[in-house]
Nucleic acid binder design. Structure first.
Lengths: 325, 325
DNA sequence: TCTTGACTTGAAACGCGTTTCATACATTAC
DNA sequence: GTAATGTATGAAACGCGTTTCAAGTCAAGA
């Protein structure tokens, strides 16, 4: 395969000139420009992108770290990232971690090795210190709320989102409130847990351990929750549910086994999934797609200008009242 | 940042020796080995992966071409690809195309530029010729059925899948059968369309143009189909539906507006989505995750051995009878 | 003792595009 | 008419790890 030196020889110019022509730089005579293009044509020249990456020290590739892909939340975030990346001519390198620390560190290590110009972290398991240690290797944008102010982060205020939903339930007269969560760790879940504690305490209600349903990630988990609920002696009268997927599982199973919603059990989901609209599920709309878009833009802005408009960006969540609460 | 030459100087050895140590090759004395590791430690050495890629001419990166990510079908396929890639130490570079020919060609061009070692095409718009033109630039695996035998391909036999479902409906006495499709072009849709024509003709029924619902991709589209259906003078008594997502949209909207399923309208979906199970939707189970896995394995096998076990691989689909047909 | 083979090691070439710096000529400015 | 600019162009250095090839050492086999 022909390289740039072969081209130079063929066109009777120097490699510098070839490079200039190929990259559209000025200060090349029309005549040589033409000669180079013709030589390129003739030799079927194709740039070796790896050589470009090495020489430039930049790749226009952004890494995306996420636990799994086949999940409405994460695929929405990537879609947002991807749309913006496409627009600005960047490519995405996927780092699926399954929430394994080792894989997360591997992704960070790749950043250090200059495989990509920056990294977007959709969700993670390792602690902040790990990210801090890699900050000088390239910009890292987190899609979760961080208590530290030296990180780039775009996030949805899950605390407020949860508070909103809780207040609504309380206003409706509910006092026996439980919730479902994906995994207990993680800032989002922590924020939700905090909101739960705070708001209930505010109205003088004791939070109950057994009304917290853990490990709720998928539709099927909703069914499980419903089965647990029906088997309880003391049942909550309302549930805040991880996601609309899980909420849909609850609502559908409830219908099947004849539990009346919202009379016997009020349900509020999160996300504003199309499924929630279809099923009339009251939900807190979360802008996942936008989250991805903004995360990319923040990173991109930093990469291109070296400056930040802002390091933190918060996205709004709003309650959509429908039929289930 | 220290490079391999700095390391060599620090350790008092040649760069070749450093490279040997770093890559765990034999024929290096224990003493020098130790010296190199210590130097690496001291200088905080990190490999520049781009230099490795350039020197080796390989990247252990596989490209994935797909129209969009936030879609149950595609995200399942990527998940399968990703799982296997992770296992064999490969990385995935995403090429979202939105079915735009230009973007698809861009991905192929990247293969030519040696950005990745191979490419998996989940779905595409350009014709076969385009792929043929890039075959020598690296292995390309297609996840759709191809009539040509010089391509690597892993696919689900959509023709047979459709035939299965149609025969079942016919056995149940249905004659007024329609179907929903994502987009008319594309081999999968073509296969389904072909099966539809063939099977109906077989039982002497004339296929009707107006019983084919196009542009059905998401849950919401199911609602639209139901609305169209209800407004029809002559309604089909059964529908084969693009995906379980769309089928769910149909079933849920039917419930809402009081259409009895399967009595007034029988519905068969495709995929075996958890949602279909939840809703008791009769469906043809399609192994999307497996499709991704196999596509990667085929590619991987070729990359590592340069030989093929087989170029074509067909995956089975089977009908799961539940409540909607 | 001589050959052979295994083990060590380093110089140098290789993969290849980008960028800097010096040079040379043609203008425009004063 | 001389200085200051702008335009063109190429040699060479640069980014950096891998790999080949030649050479040297040492012990085992003939």
């Amino acid at each position: 395969m022909a390289n740039i030196r072969d081209l130079a020889k063929e066109a009777g110019v120097s490699v510098a000139t070839v490079s200039r022509v190929l990259n559209g730089y000025p200060y090349v005579s029309e005549e040589k420009r033409k000669a180079v293009w013709e030589a390129a044509q003739k030799l079927q020249y194709v740039k070796n992108i790896q050589a470009v990456h090495l020489a430039k020290g930049r790749t226009a590739i952004v890494g995306v770290m996420l636990p799994y892909i086949h999940h409405p939340y994460f695929s929405a975030v990537i879609e947002g990232i991807s749309k913006e990346a496409l627009r600005y001519g960047y490519q995405l390198l996927l780092f699926q971690t399954n929430y394994e620390v080792e894989r997360e560190l591997e992704a960070l290590e790749r950043l250090r090795m200059k495989q990509m110009d920056g990294l977007i972290v959709c969700s993670h398991e390792v602690d902040w210190e790990a990210f801090a240690a890699y900050q000088e290797d390239g910009p890292i944008v987190l899609c979760e709320q961080v208590e530290r102010y030296d990180f780039f982060t775009v996030y949805i205020d899950h605390y407020q989102a949860f508070v909103q939903a809780l207040r609504y339930l309380i206003k409706k007269g509910h006092r026996r409130i439980g919730y479902c969560i994906g995994r207990m760790t993680g800032p989002n879940s922590q924020a939700r847990a905090g909101a739960y504690q705070d708001v209930l305490r505010e109205v003088g209600v004791l939070p109950r351990r057994q009304w917290v349903f853990d490990g709720c990630l998928f539709l099927e988990d909703g069914k499980r929750v419903m089965e647990q609920w029906i088997a309880m002696e003391e049942r909550p009268s309302a549930l805040l549910v991880t996601s609309d997927q899980v909420a849909a599982g609850i609502v559908l199973h409830a219908r099947r086994i004849g539990v009346r919603i919202p009379d016997e059990l009020a349900v509020i989901g999160f996300d504003n999934d199309p499924l929630a609209e279809m099923l009339g599920i009251t939900t807190v709309a979360l802008p996942h797609f936008t989250l991805g878009e903004r995360a990319f833009r923040l990173l991109h802005h930093w990469l291109e200008t070296g400056r930040v408009a802002r390091k933190q960006e918060e996205l709004p969540a709003r309650l959509l009242v429908r039929d289930t609460a």
